[in-house]
Amino acid sequence: MLMSHYLVVAGILFSIGMFGVLLRRNTLVMLMCLELMLNAVNLLFVAFSRYNLNLDGNLFVFFAITVAAAEVAVGLAIVVALFKRKDTVQVDAFTEMKN
């Protein structure tokens, strides 16, 4: 298939992820949409890597997956700690800080 097809698929996936982060109020779903965005960029890297016949893109995906894993781990730890204290995972409830 053409490279541009892969670009469009990765682009739509990225847009769906951004849509989810802005729309949903459930922290867990927001984190999953964040992962969707990172996954879309991984697809873009591998596609470009194949198109340019260059292995660097695939190697970058290693680092990207590692960063995503670390971020998810820390994010879920914070969500669980918040849930233990506030009994909810909706971002709307996290409004203790005002002026």
Binding site: M1, L2, M3, S4, H5, L7, V8, A10, G11, I12, F14, S15, I16, M18, F19, G20, L22, L23, R50, Y51, L53
Partner: peptide, 28 residues
């Protein structure tokens, strides 16, 4: 509305990028 606007802008951006000629070649 904000999410929909972001989605549309990003998709339009990606489609515009995909129309550039150097990317419209099959995979080697």
């Amino acid at each position: 509305i904000a999410a929909a606007i972001a989605f549309l802008m990003l998709t339009v951006g990606f489609v515009m990028m995909a129309m550039s000629p150097e990317l419209n070649q099959p995979m080697p």
